[in-house]
Nucleic acid binder design. Structure first.
Length: 426
RNA sequence: GGAGGGAUGGCCGAGUGGACGAAGGCGGUUGUCUUGAAAACAACUGUGGCGCAAGCCACCGGGGGUUCGAAUCCCUCUCCCUCCGCCA
């Protein structure tokens, strides 16, 4: 959510930002109109309430003094004010509801250095690392490798749960577990993160807090009877950990990391990305979430990205860092960089991390504040997050990049201690 | 799932429909005293909204209602506790 005061005072900048985002449906003009109407009504309502409060006190005093007649006369007048108030309050409630709803549908303002373009065609590769693997044989896609090695069972996954579900088996399941443990250990031991194990089902207010609702409810799974939503990423529960809180001076920055399953409806056109395990309804992801002081936001973003890149480098997986253009920015992000890893079998760059700075956009929605120093006024924190990293796409990259002519796959050296010393999956 | 009891400021805890934004205590900050500290004493000590300001308004778990007026009465939701049942 944006700061309505800022919106009032920077109408031009706001309009410009919405143009850059190509956010033609963002109801920012409506929000400003409603805000004006809201304040008008609020002034009237509060004046009436003040009058009524005064009158009610007076009635109490008159009764105590036994001036019953005067009290009753005043009571009659207060009844009138009450009726007037009731009408105005109803109108105010209505306007506030519409105002709030509009505010929740206005996307974040992009940082000044985000590439301006109407869609993803404007995304810019800002960094490339590593050599793409070369083979003197025809490299296979992971769905073939996985089946031949008997470590990915697509057919039975579909039998259980339908399209876009899969089963990892044997060394495949263990490889995933090794990756998760190694990711977590690096972030905990070397990058200063504290591990958390959050709920995978959350109340809708959490989804509003991180900005998944109201606009993206159609990609979420939810309980049919109760207000429980399956998390599409650990960002949701972990960011909302501190909702409605004022963090004590000295508690920032907070770094959390969590490994959780992620559930997404992925309502993409049937037939797109159906083969293999690239786009699925359930996957594991290690997510880093930061709560920081505003002036450190950009530095914290860079170090967050590095925390993810380092994993790819140590896995020896070639990747590129992509600056996301304004038109492709997610609703809540002020700036976002994706990390894409090369998969030699399907010859594709796979998104395995998405690192974003939200400034105070999520903090306003979830009401997460901190006190800069003892006795100071609370301020909104800045939140950031990024995958470090997403599975099973890393498995795809490992299988496809480290495959050998005989169909076996070399395990990246850093993972071997987590694989019981296994160096080759065959 | 069944039965009952709760939710009040940073914490503990009082609160009869009218002087309650809320007693009292603890904690915290500042001041007086002191060479310094402690003690004692005093003042201050929540969040947000509107407004240039004075100030006004809202908030006693959330929402709704009754009333001239609600922390207090009614309805409803959420959460917590105790006991029973079930369970990894």
């Amino acid at each position: 959510m944006l700061d309505i005061k800022w919106m009032r005072e920077n109408r031009e900048a706001l309009a410009e930002a919405m143009r850059k985002l190509n956010a033609t449906d963002a109801p920012w003009e409506k929000a400003l109109e409603l805000d004006e109407r809201r304040r008008e009504l609020l002034a009237k309502v509060e004046a009436l309430r003040a009058e009524r409060n005064k009158g009610s006190k007076e009635i109490g005093r008159l009764f105590r003094e036994g001036k019953k007649e005067e009290a009753n006369a005043l009571k009659a007048r207060m009844t009138e004010i009450g009726q007037e108030l009731e009408a105005l309050e109803a109108e105010l409630r209505q306007v506030e509801e519409e105002f709030y709803d509009a505010m929740m549908r206005i996307p974040n303002i992009p940082e000044p250095d985000v590439p301006v373009a109407p869609d993803e065609s404007g995304n810019v590769v800002v960094k490339e690392w590593g050599q793409l693997p070369r083979f003197d044989f025809q490299p296979k896609p992971h769905w073939d490798l996985g089946e031949e090695l008997d470590i990915i069972d697509l057919e039975r996954g579909v039998k259980l749960s339908g399209s876009r579900f899969y089963i990892l088996k044997g060394a495949g399941a263990r490889l995933q577990r090794a990756l998760i443990n190694w990711f977590l250990d690096v972030h905990i031991n070397e990058h200063g993160y504290t591990e958390v194990y959050p709920p995978f089902l959350v109340r809708s207010h959490c989804m509003w807090g991180t900005g998944n609702l109201p606009k993206f409810g159609d990609v979420l799974y939810r309980d049919a009877e109760e207000d429980y939503w399956l998390i599409p990423t650990a960002e949701v529960p972990v960011t909302n950990m501190y909702r409605e809180e004022i963090l004590e001076p000295g508690s920032l920055p907070i770094y959390h990391v969590a490994a959780t399953p992620c559930f997404r409806r992925e309502k993409v056109s049937a037939g797109k990305d159906v083969r293999g395990i690239k786009r699925v309804h359930q996957f594991e992801k290690v997510e880093m979430v930061k709560f920081v002081e505003p002036h450190t936001g950009r530095d914290e973003l860079e170090s967050l990205i590095r925390n993810a890149e380092e994993l790819l480098e140590r896995l020896e997986l070639p990747y590129r860092r992509v600056a996301i253009a304004t038109g492709d920015l997610s609703f809540v992000a002020a700036i976002k960089f994706d990390l894409e890893v090369w998969a030699a079998g399907c010859e594709e760059w796979l998104e395995v991390s998405s690192c974003s700075l939200f400034r105070d956009f999520q903090a306003r929605r979830a009401n997460i504040r901190y006190r800069p120093e003892e006795g100071a006024k609370p301020e909104y924190v800045y939140t950031l997050n990024g995958s470090g990293l997403a599975l099973p796409r890393i498995i795809i990259a490992i299988l496809e990049n480290f495959q050998q002519p005989d169909g076996s796959v070399v395990v990246p050296p850093v993972l071997r201690p987590y694989m019981g010393g296994v160096a080759v999956i065959r």
